[in-house]
């Protein structure tokens, strides 16, 4: 039974990380119907920004809590700036082009950002400082759920709650939902659609940056390539949950994380990805729009 609980927490932690990245994919898709393949790179840039800020601050001897908060805010702001700029440079000019064009543009942006970080920083793995301390009160259960797992789970939950609040109860959120439903109609009722799209990219990027900070601190290393696999997995999770649906992205991520964890634990880690993607195929066969996705109705 202990083993089951250990795997459960391991899967939840993994799923939470996927969720933070998957939200960016799903929000952007919901609003402009684009799969933003550069989103994994935003996560990577967030981790790098946090790394640089945390390293500098620790040289000046800041307390750990201050470092986490400042590094987190800096990563979120910097990644948001990237997300905003990418949208303006690579996607906005192609908004009325055929659907394939922005997709290729997104893949190009992803390759560009990877190589940019490779050249501007390094191709080596860098040791990421352990920003999440080992709490003493966690010591009795540390072998089951560690301090960093706990912090990741709590942070993800808080972030989700804030996001839900923004989307359900604020003017920006209402405008976002309107734009997602019908962009032309939203424009007609006076919503500045361009601003709303930018806001979506900013929020999605900030979430990915927080994910980058948490996971980098959890596993203790980063390099320019970490965004690729994390991005693919998060994208899978978003599709699993129904791309375009925000609760779907969270549910999909948790299902994916738990599947991987239990597949490793009870079968073999050789087949971790096989199980994850078999599950995706099965769900898409029986529910093509994903777990919580709405079937797309063609407007006539």
């Amino acid at each position: 039974m202990d083993y089951f609980i250990e795997l459960l927490f391991s899967g939840l932690t993994r799923g939470s990380i996927y969720a933070l990245i998957a939200l960016g994919y799903t929000m952007v898709y919901g609003i402009i119907g684009l799969i933003n393949f550069a989103h994994g790179e935003i996560y990577m840039i967030g981790a790098f920004t946090a790394f640089i800020v945390a390293t500098v601050l620790s040289i000046y001897g800041f307390p750990l809590l201050a470092i986490i908060v400042i590094a987190g805010v800096a990563a979120a702001v910097w990644s948001s700036a990237y997300g905003y700029t990418i949208e303006k440079i690579a996607y906005k000019p192609l908004r009325h082009a055929p659907r394939l064009s922005p997709l290729i543009s997104a893949i190009g942006m992803s390759i560009f950002l990877q190589n940019y970080v490779l050249l501007a920083q390094t191709s080596d793995f860098l040791p990421f400082p352990a920003l999440i301390p080992e709490f003493e009160f966690m010591e009795p259960v540390a072998h089951i759920v560690g301090s960093s797992d706990l912090v990741i789970l709590i942070t993800t939950t808080i972030v989700m709650l804030i996001l839900t609040y923004i989307i359900k109860f604020t003017r920006v959120g209402k405008a976002m939902r309107a734009t997602a439903q019908d962009r032309t109609m939203a424009m007609l009722v006076g919503i500045n659609v361009n601003q709303i799209i930018s806001a979506t990219f900013i929020i999605g990027s900030a979430l990915a940056a927080i994910g980058g900070l948490l996971i980098a601190s959890h596993i203790g290393q980063i390099n320019f390539y970490i965004g690729f696999i994390a991005g693919i997995k998060a994208f899978t999770a978003a599709v699993l949950g129904g791309i375009g649906s925000i609760p779907g992205a969270v549910l999909g991520s948790l299902v994916l994380g738990l599947t991987e964890s239990f597949a490793t634990g009870y079968v073999s880690s050789d087949y971790e990805d096989v199980f994850a993607f078999s599950l995706l195929v099965l769900i898409l066969i029986f529910k093509p729009s994903g777990l919580l996705g709405k079937a797309e109705t063609k407007k006539v």
Partner: peptide
């Protein structure tokens, strides 16, 4: 005797399995 996926975000499941 098992293989892990390089680049995965988390290896805690295989670590738990090693302990078990």
């Amino acid at each position: 005797f098992e293989g892990v996926t390089p680049g995965a975000v988390d290896y805690s499941a295989i670590v738990l399995k090693i302990r078990k």
